[in-house]
Amino acid sequence: MIQEITKSNKALLSALDCDEDNIIIEGFMERYSVNRDEASEILQETKKWLWLASENIKEKKSFRLFIDNSLLIIDEMWHNFILHTRIYQKFCNEKLNLFVHHEPTSASEKIRGFDSEEEKQKYQKFQEEKLRQQLSYIYDKLGAETVSKWYEEFPEKFNEKKIHAIKR
């Protein structure tokens, strides 16, 4: 059923609904100074992200989804979700039929040096293409509203500095 859902975020979220959502939400509220509605919304968006990641794998796409600075708050909720190992495993097994692993980018990969301006531009062009591909995939599967929430609303509301400030 879940596989057939595209662009219908409400139906998707209903399909991804879990009995233990409150435990995850309360865990996040213990670690970050956000209210219940905010934590609940971030969890919903994180579940959509995980569903999309599983779809990306099942469809054998040539690219893997990545989290960059725009999606940091989803990454934070994902970390919080993973802490509850049994619930996370159950969610992956029952809702996604796939265990979605989290693989951080190493520090050496993040801090890149370039031998020339040409090499730097080439790398940036490559990153831009990867991002365009990902945005297009999100748009096709979840619609413009989700792209806007993840890449406009969330970075504004929860940028790196703000996330640091709300950490308890």
């Binding site: 990545f66 980018t105 990153q127 831009e128 945005l135």
Partner: peptide, 24 residues
Amino acid sequence: QFLNNILAKKKIQSPTCVTVCAVN
């Protein structure tokens, strides 16, 4: 047009993490 607008506003950065899946 929608994606171009988003990309134009966004500073391109390296990924923080990627998703990797294991089929059960």
